[in-house]
C-alpha cells in the first residue's frame, strides 16, 4: 500500500499550470461539461463518438496538464472496467435488426464481434465521461466551482433550497479533504511503524486493520470541526443572508468562443448518433 495517496489519487486535484482552459469562466466550464456528458449519452457508436473524442483531445492539449499525469488517474478506472466489460460482452443482447454471428455460444452467454465492439464502445464512453469531469477538476479551483454552482443553482432558491448554505458546506467539506488525506497518511505511517501490514490478509483482516486508523481520524476530524465552528463564528459568519462577495465572474469573449466550439462538436456527435445510429 502506498503511503502517498495524494501522489497516486489524481482525481479531484487542481493542477495550477495556468492555461487557457484554467482561465475560462467556471460556469462556462460546468455548462460545457454538462453538455458534453449529455451528448455522450446520445451517441450510438464509434462514429458519433468521434467529435466527443476530439473535444477530449482538444481540452487535454490546451489545458497544459501533462498527459502522463492524466493517464495515471485512469489506472483504477481501467482496473474496474476490465472486471465489468467481460460481463457486458458475455451477456450481449443485440438490438432488433442487428445480425449477430457469435464465435462461441452457451446458454445466454456468447462472444461475438458485435458484443466486443459494444463493450469497447462502452469503455470509450466511460473513459471520455471520466476524462471530462477530471479535466474540469484539474483546471478549476474549488472556490470557482462552488461560486459557479452558487450562481447556476440560484433559481433553486425560489424553491426554498438553501443554496448559499449548501455551497458553504461544500466549501468547508472540500477544505477538509487535503487535511484529512494528510492525517490519514500520518496515521497509516504510524500504524505501519508499529508493525501493521496493510497490504496482506483477507477482506475481514484488512477491515480490522483499518479500524485503528479510522477511529483517531474521526476523533481528530470532529475536534477540528468543533474549533472551525468557533472560528467561523468569530469571523462573523451568520449564514448566506446579507453576505457579499469579493469575487465576481465575467463572461469574456474567449468563454463564448470555447462554449460555441464545444457545443458545435457535442451537438454534432448527438446528431450523428441520433440520425445515423453509428
Amino acid at each position: 500500500m502506498s503511503l502517498e495517496f495524494s501522489r497516486t489519487v489524481t482525481f479531484g486535484q487542481y493542477i495550477n499550470v495556468n492555461s487557457v482552459v484554467h482561465r475560462l469562466d467556471a460556469r462556462i466550464k460546468m455548462l460545457s461539461v454538462a453538455c458534453v456528458m449529455f451528448c455522450t449519452f446520445m451517441t450510438r457508436g464509434f462514429v458519433s463518438i468521434l467529435p466527443i473524442l476530439a473535444i477530449a483531445v482538444l481540452i487535454q492539449v490546451t489545458s497544459k496538464i501533462p498527459v502522463g499525469y492524466t493517464l495515471r488517474g485512469y489506472r483504477l478506472l481501467l482496473r474496474t472496467m476490465l472486471f465489468i466489460i467481460p460481463f457486458q460482452i458475455l451477456f450481449y443482447r443485440a438490438p432488433a435488426g442487428v445480425q449477430v454471428d457469435p464465435y462461441w455460444q452457451w446458454w445466454v452467454l456468447s462472444i461475438s464481434p458485435q458484443g466486443i465492439s459494444a463493450g469497447l464502445y462502452t469503455l470509450t464512453r466511460v473513459i471520455l465521461l471520466y476524462h471530462t469531469i477530471n479535466m474540469l477538476m484539474f483546471t478549476t479551483t474549488m472556490i470557482d466551482l462552488s461560486d459557479g454552482a452558487e450562481i447556476l443553482f440560484e433559481p433553486l432558491k425560489k424553491l426554498r433550497v438553501p443554496v448559499n448554505e449548501l455551497v458553504m458546506t461544500m466549501t468547508v467539506a472540500l477544505k477538509f479533504v487535503p487535511l484529512l488525506i494528510t492525517e490519514l497518511e500520518r496515521l497509516i505511517r504510524a500504524q505501519t511503524a508499529r508493525g501493521v501490514r496493510f497490504d496482506t490478509g483477507g477482506v475481514i483482516e484488512r477491515t480490522k486493520k483499518i479500524v485503528p486508523v479510522l477511529i483517531p481520524l474521526f476523533v481528530n476530524a470532529l475536534n477540528r470541526a468543533e474549533v472551525l465552528i468557533v472560528a467561523m463564528n468569530a469571523r462573523c459568519y451568520h449564514g448566506g443572508e446579507g453576505r457579499t462577495k469579493l469575487r465576481t465572474m465575467h463572461i469574456a469573449s474567449t468563454d463564448v468562443f470555447a462554449l460555441s466550439i464545444i457545443l458545435l462538436f457535442a451537438v454534432s456527435a448527438a446528431y450523428i448518433g441520433r440520425t445515423f445510429g453509428v
Binding site: M142, K175, Y237, T244, L246
Partner: peptide
C-alpha cells in the same frame, strides 16, 4: 488549519469582510 476556511489565500482573507456584507 483550524481557522482557515477557503481553499485559496485571497478567498480566505475575504471571508470575514464578506460576512459583514460590505
Amino acid at each position: 488549519d483550524d481557522q482557515l476556511i477557503a481553499n485559496r489565500v485571497i478567498d480566505d482573507i475575504a471571508f470575514g469582510p464578506e460576512n459583514l456584507g460590505l
